Amino acid sequence: MGKKLNVLFGKSSKTAAKLKMLANLAISRIAVLKNIHSVKCLQAQSDVIQLLHLGQQERALLRVEHVIKEQDVLGAFFLIENFCHVLGEHAETVKNSRECPDELKEAISSLIFASARCGEFPELQKLRAFFTS
């Protein structure tokens, strides 16, 4: 993977700039999606409270599952955001070095994995195409 990155980053600084731009766009989209899912999570939590006050434990249990799912999605967004920050910070470093840093390898592989599972991130799809080409 290090040789491919050297080829990608070694020829021009436009590649590093494009990588930074895609990472920043993904971070911006994550901020919006985190807000949306946070609101959904808070709404589901208030629904659980209301259902428990009404004595509807079965329906409250279903809503708790929804709360857990939303919290898992928010956790995944947090990880993706951190990997995008790492990718943006190390774009120039990788361009100038012969070997890809280990933390960047983890970030790239994780973002490629996430891109296959997150259809709401066109930036991740572009990052995946960028690294798999």
Rank of each mutant, 00 (worst) to 15 (best):
R63P: 00
L74A: 00
L33S: 02
Q45F: 04
L51W: 06
L61Q: 08
L52F: 07
A26M: 02
I68M: 11
A76C: 07
C84S: 05
V39L: 14
Q45P: 01
E65R: 04
A76N: 11
L62T: 09
I30E: 08
L74R: 00
V67G: 03
Q56I: 10
L52G: 07
L79A: 14
L61R: 07
E70L: 09
L33D: 01
I36W: 03
H85L: 10
I27W: 02
E58P: 01
G75W: 01
G75E: 08
R63H: 05
A44N: 02
R29P: 04
E81Y: 08
K40S: 07
G88K: 12
A60P: 05
R29I: 01
L42R: 12
E65G: 12
E70V: 02
C84G: 05
V48F: 05
V67L: 03
H85F: 10
F77D: 03
R59C: 01
K69Q: 14
K40W: 03
D47S: 14
L74T: 00
E81S: 12
N35E: 12
H37K: 13
R59P: 00
D72F: 06
V73H: 01
V86T: 14
G55C: 05
Q50K: 15
H85Q: 11
Q45H: 06
A31F: 08
Q43A: 12
A31G: 13
E58D: 14
V32A: 11
I68K: 10
I36D: 14
A26S: 08
V67P: 07
L79Q: 15
S28P: 06
Q45D: 03
V86W: 04
A44F: 01
A26N: 06
R59L: 10
Q43W: 05
G55M: 03
H37M: 09
V39G: 06
K69D: 15
C41H: 02
Q56M: 09
L79R: 15
H66I: 10
Q57A: 11
F77E: 02
L33R: 07
L74P: 00
L79H: 15
N35P: 00
C84H: 04
I27A: 07
V64F: 05
V73Q: 04
G75P: 05
K34N: 07
E81W: 05
L54K: 15
I36K: 14
Q71H: 04
E58R: 11
V86L: 07
L51G: 05
D47G: 05
V48H: 03
Q45M: 12
A26Y: 01
L79E: 15
V86H: 06
F78E: 09
E81L: 00
E70G: 00
A76L: 06
V48Q: 03
G55T: 10
R59W: 01
V73A: 03
G75D: 10
S46N: 15
